Computed example of a mutant assay.
Amino acid sequence: MNILGVESSCDETGVALVRAGPKQQIPELRAHALHSQIDMHQAYGGVVPELASRDHIRRVLPLTRQVLADAGAQLSDIDVVAFTQGPGLAGALLVGAGVACSLGAALGKPVVGVHHLEGHLLSPFLSKDPPQFPFVALLVSGGHTQLMRVDDVASYELLGETIDDAAGEAFDKSAKLMGLGYPGGPALARLAEFGDAKAFDLPRPLLHSGNLDFSFAGLKTAVRTQLMKLANVCEQDKANLAASTQEAIVELLVRKSLAALKETGLKRLVVAGGVGANARLREMLNAECAKRQVRVHYPELSLCTDNGAMIALAAAMRLQRGIAKTSTDHTFNVLPRWPLHAA
């Protein structure tokens, strides 16, 4: 069975083709293509929803043709069309949903709406070192920071989440305060390589809260306060503040993940979402989990950002288990706010 996946929830247009076999087999990624809108949004310092939607319209069909060509497949080879139904920007989601359902109607094939976070959560199954159920998942991106217990596809228990900003948002907002470029997270991480992570004593909110929730808004305020104290900010001061900021965010993510593993008694951790590509986060998690004999799994770096492969994969794994909510009338709606446990 061939599943075409379309992702258009924010500022990346992704299309992929995945082949699914029996339930015991991990679906195979045949081809995927991705277009990032970073260059377009840089002039505005962040994502402009209307521009994002218009760009998805321009990109999705050429990317679909590219994926089919790379996979050596034809439109007639597609058995199911999957799309990101939510959460995300409403206009952007409508582009992917409209194209996917139109294509499904034209081919006479069913369509499947996929939860964006479920795609991220399952994306490490396409890596060279796929996980096994059950595991603790750290979903960490620009819009979400959550810890989940995952027993199987569609069997998720929320253990903790951010009460304000997401980790990726903390990276981006701190970078903006420092005058760094867009996207801020990667820019801050690059600058942090030249700084001293102990130069500034930044807070770790909720580190000792006794639960698995996160908070990053206070950290952003602390970064602003430090910048105000520095009369003339030199490049080394910026590098030191970037390193200290990254260390605070990463320590919170690592310590809470370890607490979740201890609470559940599980020995496997999956890290997914854009922030999962952060080198310092991977370094610290690998070191701490090795001490505790815990296996850590990540998506391939090319699949950390939003992409069509994770959407096709999530649909494929639900189809394998007979729990996919397929539609054959090709009507659709999108869910900009959609909790994962309701998927």
Rank of each mutant, 00 (worst) to 15 (best):
A314W: 08
E169F: 02
I3W: 07
G308A: 09
V271R: 01
I26H: 02
R280L: 06
D164W: 01
G322F: 05
Y44F: 14
A170I: 07
V95L: 15
D213Y: 06
L17F: 14
E169S: 10
S8P: 12
L158S: 03
R58P: 05
D79C: 14
V81F: 01
N232A: 08
T145H: 11
L303I: 03
S244A: 14
V136A: 01
G108N: 03
E28M: 06
A312N: 00
D151E: 15
G168K: 03
K173F: 01
Y298E: 04
A217Y: 05
G273M: 08
C10E: 12
R204M: 12
R204N: 11
Q25G: 07
L159P: 03
A248N: 04
L180P: 03
L335E: 14
D213I: 10
R54N: 11
V223D: 03
V6K: 02
L285S: 07
A71Y: 11
A20M: 15
D165I: 00
Q236L: 04
F125T: 09
I38Q: 02
V18R: 04
M40T: 06
K238N: 04
D237P: 02
V6F: 04
G104T: 06
Q85Y: 09
H116A: 10
G210H: 06
A222I: 00
I311A: 05
S127E: 13
R149T: 15
A97P: 10
Q85R: 13
A82Q: 13
A277N: 04
M310E: 00
T225E: 08
E193V: 15
G45K: 12
Y298C: 08
G86H: 08
E118I: 15
N232I: 11
R65C: 01
L340F: 10
D329K: 06
A33G: 08
E157T: 15
V153S: 05
H208Q: 13
L258A: 10
D213T: 06
A342V: 12
G88P: 03
L147T: 11
E235K: 07
H330F: 12
C289E: 10
L258F: 14
C304G: 02
D39R: 08
E28C: 04
Q320F: 10
E283G: 04
T162W: 00
G181Y: 06
P124S: 00
P87H: 03
L301D: 07
C10S: 06
P339L: 10
H208Y: 13
V250S: 03
P186R: 03
A69Y: 09
L103C: 14
A106S: 10
L121S: 01
V48N: 11
S302M: 07
